[in-house]
């Protein structure tokens, strides 16, 4: 994919207009989805009441309480988690030049979930922030494992190898989690992280997401130009005098900040990190300065919509949102697997 897109970076001015249009359009879509997400649920609330609850909060009204304490944090949390997963997927695809790279395919989300189980069992008194840190460590560990496997394999990290390494490391970590949770009888919490869901999102989780993810997003945008050059090939990047090791290290930091924060709040929600960067690349071209912001908005939009769907499909029961994203993501994965794109 790298070579064919090489020339497109030249046409940047033309693409910026288009990207800006797509960006604004998706932002509007996201806002509408957020509104729908807050309004629809077990009991539907009128949009005017939603607006009232936001601008003129009245604690005496139950609907205002529901919106402020339950639905709003959940909707905002979904938007943030979705955009973080999408951006970390985009960064991973840029760094590895591998179309299948994404937090769920590479086992990163499993790493974070594993660390969360370990923290839950061995440090039960850990605060929310402590749990988020555990999640970062787990995500970082999994990224490190997959990259180590990749860099020591003969023939480099082809998409098949990457996917298989992700399956193996993800399988290993989730098996360890199951063994630990069976022994210490925390299976219920474990099944929550593995099914993935936003039901427990409150304002504290939103704060954690904003802090950790905010840092990650800023770094991602800061290295986006360097990443565009890197995605043309390591030699090109070095030839242009870029410090590829610095870019890659920062990229890894972005991945585990964003994936770690996302998993600690919503569990292992799959495929957003795979699908959204591809759609963004298709819409705005190969420049990561455009891909990253567009991915962030589209990812948020997708997860907010999926989460709303998860609540409505089988109301009053919640469908795990991971299952819904998988139904969008699996066909997409199969499409990528079938296409013989250059480096597949």
């Amino acid at each position: 994919m790298a070579q064919s897109d090489e020339l497109k970076t030249e046409q940047l001015p033309k693409r910026i207009g288009r990207a800006a249009f797509i960006f604004i359009f998706s932002c509007i879509g996201l806002v509408f989805s957020l509104g729908a997400s807050v309004a629809f649920g077990v009991s539907d609330i009128e949009l005017s009441t939603v607006w009232q609850a936001v601008v003129a909060f009245d604690p005496a009204q139950t609907n205002h309480q529901v919106i402020q304490e339950l639905r709003l944090p959940r909707a905002v949390g979904a938007a943030l988690v979705g955009s973080f997963l999408a951006v970390s997927g985009a960064v991973m695809q840029g760094l590895t030049r591998n179309p299948l790279a994404s937090p769920s395919v590479m086992g990163v989300t499993h790493g974070a979930a594993f660390a969360l189980i370990v923290a839950l069992v061995f440090f039960p008194s850990l605060s929310n922030i402590g749990m988020t840190f555990a999640s970062f460590i787990g995500a970082g560990l999994a990224v490190l494992l997959v990259f180590t496997v990749g860099s020591f394999s003969s023939g480099g990290l082809t998409p098949v190898k990457l996917a298989l390494a992700g399956v193996a490391i993800g399988g290993m970590l989730s098996s360890l989690s199951t063994a630990i949770s069976l022994h210490f009888q925390v299976a219920k919490q474990m099944s929550f992280w593995y099914a993935g869901g936003l039901a427990n999102t409150d304002w504290t989780s939103v704060q954690i997401l904003l802090v950790a993810g905010g840092i990650g997003l800023v770094i991602a945008i800061a290295i986006s130009k360097a990443m565009t050059v890197l995605s043309l090939g390591e030699d090109v990047s070095k030839g242009l005098g870029q410090n590829t090791i610095l870019v890659k290290s920062l990229g890894v930091v972005v991945v585990f900040l964003l994936s770690g924060a996302a998993v600690s709040v919503a569990g292992t929600v799959g495929f957003i990190g795979l699908v959204i960067p591809h759609i963004s690349r298709f819409l705005v071209g190969a420049d990561y300065r455009l891909i990253i912001p567009v991915s962030a908005v589209l990812g948020g939009w997708l997860l907010v919509a999926a989460d709303t769907g998860a609540r409505l499909v089988n109301a009053p029961y919640e469908t795990p949102v991971g299952a819904i994203t998988a139904f969008i993501g699996v066909p997409f994965f199969l499409y990528l697997a079938r296409g013989n794109r250059g480096n597949m």
């Binding site: 299948l100 998409p159 098949v160 996917a163 298989l164 399956v167 099914a195 799959g270 495929f271 795990p320 991971g322 299952a323 998988a326 139904f327 993501g329 699996v330 994965f333 199969l334 697997a337 079938r338």
Partner: peptide
């Protein structure tokens, strides 16, 4: 193999 991994994930979602 790649298709297998994808189908595997699809069945997993169905199970969930």
């Amino acid at each position: 193999i790649l298709v297998g991994i994808g189908v595997n994930a699809g069945f997993g979602a169905g199970l969930i």
